[in-house]
């Protein structure tokens, strides 16, 4: 398939269009909420949340007996949220440090998820279940119905983000000052983390639990390089996420056997690399050029 065919297919091929649309939605939502996670130094929390979603997916299948996306998503969100609350509880009530609590939750929940997954695959209807696609993601399996759900829940999360914008901004920048103003900082904290969990669960089917945290971190890290305003950082992060989603889906559709998740993540990582190197104010290359110009300027003056 050459490039032109690819673009023709993007607009006219039903499957590819659905898949690309879904990837764009998941990239945009996780990009926008990921910006807050990165600014709040919760990059690794995204990883723990996505791994903690796996047991929920399998449990939802075992209980409901169907692979209805709503049931699986609800299960994923439930255990992801449980994992998040476990991390918060460990941090507040014990002397265990935050990174240790992340490591504990990630490995325990993922371990339980893998045990359940291997157990489930021995069941009679295992192959139809195809739950293992939640490990590395399979965007090609996205149906129009899935994309509609993703758009509805993702849109809801973004709407809440917009409505509580100034509160989330203040809680992220200076939680003590926010407490001093009388804002319910803990509740806002939990809500923002829950929205992050929603964004992560939206992407599980296409990207998978193992790599979904990259969609939280990578677009945000890239966006931070280009701007010094929170609003433009969140928009840019959403845009980078969406571009990664669509481009990754297209590339993975070129060859059979290319998992969508890893391809999307590779595209996002490439955007990060470009941003670290070439962003005007914070990039390495412009900084080196400025140093060189300064040095030669000093020389010619001296």
């Amino acid at each position: 398939m050459n490039l032109q065919d690819l673009f023709t297919a993007l607009f006219f091929d039903y499957t590819l269009r659905t898949v690309a649309l879904g990837s764009a939605v998941l990239g945009a939502v996780s990009g926008a909420l990921g910006a807050f996670a990165v600014l709040r130094r919760q990059s690794l929390m995204g990883d723990a949340i996505s791994h903690a979603a796996l047991p929920g997916v399998v449990l939802a299948f075992l209980i409901s007996g169907s692979k209805d996306i709503l049931a699986l998503g609800a299960g994923a969100l439930f255990t992801a949220w449980l994992g998040t609350m476990a991390m918060v509880y460990i941090r507040r009530r014990t002397r265990i440090k935050e990174d240790t609590s992340l490591g504990l939750v990630l490995s325990v929940f993922f371990g339980v998820g893998m045990v359940l997954l291997t157990f489930t695959q021995r069941l009679p209807n295992a192959h139809q279940a195809g739950l293992d696609r939640f490990l590395f993601g399979q965007a090609a399996a996205l149906l129009e119905r899935d994309v509609v759900y993703m758009a509805v829940f993702g849109g809801g999360a973004l709407l809440l983000l917009a409505l509580l914008w100034k509160e989330f901004k203040l809680v992220s920048f200076d939680p003590e000052f926010a407490t001093g103003l009388g804002l319910p900082v803990r509740a806002l904290d939990v809500l923002l983390t829950t929205l992050l969990a929603v964004a992560i669960v939206l992407g599980l089917q296409a990207v998978g639990v193992v790599l979904m945290s990259a969609m939280v971190v990578a677009p945000a890290a890239a966006a931070r390089q280009w701007t010094d305003r929170l609003g433009s950082m969140v928009l840019l992060s959403a845009l980078f996420g969406a571009i990664s989603g669509v481009a990754g889906t297209l590339v993975s559709s070129l060859a059979a056997g290319l998992s969508t998740g890893p391809t999307i993540v590779l595209v996002a990582s490439f955007i990060v690399l470009l941003s670290i190197l070439f962003a005007p104010a914070r990039g390495l290359v412009p900084a080196a050029l400025r140093r060189r110009a300064q040095a030669s300027g000093a020389l010619s003056q001296g």
Binding site: R41, E167, K169, F173, D174, D228, R229
Partner: peptide, 19 residues
């Protein structure tokens, strides 16, 4: 606070009005 937060001086001062 983290002074690398993407925001301007004016924006920080406006936070005083949020209450």
């Amino acid at each position: 606070v983290d002074w690398d937060f993407p925001t301007s001086a004016l924006d920080v001062v406006m936070m005083g009005r949020y209450g």
